[in-house]
Design a protein around this nucleic acid. Structure first.
Lengths: 251, 251
DNA sequence: TCATCTCCATGATGTAGATCAATTCTCTGT
DNA sequence: ACAGAGAATTGATCTACATCATGGAGATGA
């Protein structure tokens, strides 16, 4: 039983629509189909809802909620987790700017995960029924969406490999590299960043205890692989970290 | 480095079309949209290709192959796995009759996994480009497909929880119950069945060694939870097994 | 400003499951 | 029918990580 339950129950306000649109959003090239024409982008823009930024610990949706939308992150970060019968939580993913989450509800119209903001976070809501109508007439949109889902599958399977076979050091190196790579793709610094999640969340996600996570961070620092002060991380030796990780061979 | 590489390299013959169709297939209600009208089923039937049954250890596709289809199992069983840089393999899933596999290629048109028959197995090939055309005009098909993908995501995430948090006994109980449930849904016996995969495959999948798998099977047998002779398994005490497993709470 | 809380770090000890090793059993092919 | 290889079981030992325990450093709030 974790002690965070109290905090995460606060309600997320769903309020005013900000005067932004998909054209202005610097993420659109990433979270939306690259191949989409501008006329189509306008149509998509009309269905996407932008909500007020979430505070830390506010939820986007809860496990058990009826599925109606998927969400794209404009800024901030999201943790997805589910809670088992005995109350223990399992973190299933961290999502960074430009990434999409909420697929877990499509299977039977019910969210399996709870999604909570790890810091002040702005998300775009993409109503799924509207999206389905749209994608019938915009074929690239449909395919793009499936690709995003498939990417979720591949990344889940990589995590499975990580949890099944790899040591604590390998798991943490892998997470650091994953975050680094994802930030890099968003034109953010891949070597200096702030981890939005706690050591406990990292441990939970990677199947390790807080203590082990902490020790590995210390060891990485002692080895000169990284420099870190609390959540602030600088990767000093990317190749050493890479050498620790065994990724599934790309073809 | 595993020693099975030799076997799995044999080529799968892609040969004659059997005179079956989706109407006759007793699986169609499961692998295809329930809501689909018969006219639509005919159209789908025309694109689906049925191949000669695969022998044990023959592959449907290899990691690195260009993605062009997903596959439904009519009979038999499939193991999906990927190989990391150092040659070790990671089993990412087992697929039973009525189930669909091959999503892993949608993300970037390249299969991440290799799919191999665990026994003599018959599969239906569903060419993805044809399917995409179809699903634009059959909305239920599109949604059904996304639901199948989402189910893959949910089941992967359950496995993540299992690997991150659960003991050897819990993992194996969970696998047995999963297989039992999936067979039951297909109107096959949920209490007496033959495990198509080896102990090594089970261990690989669950992040355990063969020895541990073997010991847990012995312990389960000693406790009277199951009776098993090699791959033949009978579940004697379903509730005891269920009690071992902590599933993510359904809403 | 002080009290409380959460997060993080680090040391000491325990244990589940890995590893190593040996034996039997079961397929496969000739 | 037999030889050889792979699959499974069981025992003995080892180790990476969990667990338990303590202390400090930042936050948060009255």
């Amino acid at each position: 039983m974790t002690s965070t339950d109290g905090n995460i129950k606060m309600q997320a306000p769903k309020v005013s629509i900000k005067p932004t649109n998909c054209h202005d959003c610097r993420m659109s090239a990433l979270c939306l189909p690259l191949a989409m024409e501008y006329g189509d982008l306008d149509r998509l823009d009309k269905v996407i809802q932008r909500t007020k930024p979430l505070h830390k610990n506010q939820s986007v949706f809860y496990s058990g909620d009826t599925f109606s939308s998927v969400y794209a992150i404009r800024s901030g970060s999201i943790k997805a987790y589910c809670v088992s019968d005995d109350g223990t939580e399992q973190v299933t993913g961290f999502y960074l700017p430009g990434e999409i989450f909420g697929w877990d509800g499509i299977a039977d119209d019910t969210h399996k995960n709870t999604a909570v903001a790890l810091e002040t976070t702005a998300v775009c809501e993409i109503p799924f029924n509207k999206f389905e109508e749209l994608s019938a007439s915009i074929p690239t949109l449909q395919r793009h969406f499936m690709q995003l889902m498939a990417r979720e599958i591949t990344s889940d399977q990589q995590l499975i490999t990580l949890l099944g076979k790899n040591s604590a050091e390998e798991r943490i190196a892998s997470l650091l590299l994953s975050i680094s790579g994802r930030l890099g793709r968003r034109k953010l610094s891949p070597t200096r960043f702030r981890l939005p999640m706690s050591r406990a969340d990292i441990g939970n996600y990677l199947g390790l205890t807080v203590e082990t996570v902490s020790r590995v961070f210390s060891r990485f620092q002692a080895s000169g692989y990284i420099k870190c002060d609390k959540k602030e991380v600088e990767i000093l030796n990317l190749s050493s970290l890479s050498n620790l990780v065994q990724t599934c061979a790309e073809a």
